Simulated assay, not measured.
Amino acid sequence: MGSIRSIVACLSLAALARKMSAAAAAGQCVPGTSCARPAAAPGLLRLTSVPGYDQNRVNDVLLLGPTTGTQRRCDNESEKLQNGNTHVVFFPGDIQNFQQEMALQPDTAQWQSWSLERVALTLGDRFPGCHVWVIRASSMYLHKFSSYQNFVESNLFGAPEHTPDYGAILHLRALLGHSMEKAGLPNPLPPLSGTSTPATLPPGFTLTIVGFSKGCVVLNQIVYELAGARADPELRLFLDSVSDMYWLDGGHPGGSETWVTDRCALGELASSGVAVHTHVTPYEVRDPMRAWVGREHQHFIKTLEDLGACISQKLHFEDEPASIENHFRVLREF
């Protein structure tokens, strides 16, 4: 797992860290970011050490409640209107952490405009009327490299090893249910009944799943688990509530499987009826040092199209040089 290949693949991000450290030492802002400290944001609730389906799997979660207003659309790509029980779950990428913790680290301080709190507010604008849940990675090696070990087998740098039965869907369902309870939301997701009679979902419950950069490994793992999970009546009911999945400029330090290319796994995704959206930038899909990322992205798109999936795609900033700034900007532009 901690292979030389994985370490070498992380060098570009290490170089970025050196760049950020130098900028911080000089008291400069990195172009494309903001050094201003944010005002306290109303409506944000931080939940710590929320358990999933296994007491050994816990995550910190940030909740942004729905924006005010009536009948505002939650998902711009769907026909569903605000019903008071629409939810967006977001998995962030490397570097992204709570604002206070990013401010303490020279390697991340200059990127506070992409902190979990600020991205939650951005997503609140993008999905008005929804509860926005930001899932913090369970660990961050060297304060920079996110690892979603609770959702997918991963090494220190967060490079995944996908299997069909790791329990990402189980963990997501339980984590979301416990988070709703801890936040005091009415009609939280009930615990799994463990019987042949599925626990009923709350009225109108719908879910959108969004992954950015490293966070896309969780979406990939969910795809690999679909076949087994849909055979379980309770998990199938939960999965049927998922309306949309967004892959935003996916990337990780491994040498393959940045995008799902397995046709059987993609067949399960296509047949699920979930609307698939991909938004990428040249930073990930046109990097000559990681040419497989672009090839896998195209394979992902082509296979899902052939299988009749509901899929949309967009390449952002294609006429601009590849940059880490534009990589993050996709969070505002998608």
Rank of each mutant, 00 (worst) to 15 (best):
residue 1 M to E: 14
residue 4 I to Y: 12
residue 5 R to Q: 15
residue 9 A to M: 14
residue 9 A to F: 09
residue 19 K to G: 13
residue 25 A to V: 11
residue 32 G to T: 04
residue 40 A to L: 12
residue 50 V to T: 08
residue 50 V to M: 06
residue 50 V to P: 00
residue 51 P to V: 08
residue 54 D to C: 10
residue 56 N to Y: 14
residue 62 L to N: 01
residue 64 L to G: 13
residue 67 T to S: 15
residue 68 T to Y: 13
residue 71 Q to Y: 13
residue 73 R to F: 11
residue 80 K to E: 14
residue 85 N to A: 12
residue 87 H to P: 01
residue 87 H to E: 01
residue 90 F to P: 07
residue 101 E to M: 10
residue 108 T to V: 09
residue 109 A to F: 13
residue 110 Q to P: 11
residue 111 W to S: 11
residue 114 W to C: 03
residue 115 S to P: 07
residue 116 L to I: 12
residue 117 E to V: 09
residue 118 R to L: 11
residue 118 R to K: 14
residue 124 G to F: 04
residue 129 G to S: 01
residue 133 W to K: 00
residue 141 Y to G: 04
residue 143 H to G: 04
residue 152 V to G: 01
residue 161 E to V: 15
residue 169 I to Y: 05
residue 184 G to C: 04
residue 184 G to V: 02
residue 184 G to Y: 08
residue 189 L to H: 12
residue 193 S to N: 10
residue 194 G to Q: 05
residue 197 T to Q: 13
residue 198 P to W: 04
residue 205 F to M: 05
residue 219 L to Y: 10
residue 222 I to T: 05
residue 229 A to D: 08
residue 230 R to T: 15
residue 236 R to I: 10
residue 239 L to I: 05
residue 240 D to M: 12
residue 246 Y to K: 07
residue 248 L to C: 06
residue 249 D to M: 04
residue 256 S to Y: 14
residue 256 S to L: 09
residue 271 S to I: 10
residue 271 S to E: 11
residue 272 S to M: 07
residue 273 G to M: 06
residue 277 H to T: 06
residue 278 T to P: 03
residue 287 D to G: 03
residue 288 P to E: 01
residue 290 R to C: 00
residue 292 W to S: 10
residue 293 V to P: 02
residue 294 G to P: 07
residue 302 K to P: 00
residue 304 L to K: 02
residue 311 I to A: 05
residue 311 I to C: 01
residue 312 S to K: 14
residue 332 R to D: 11
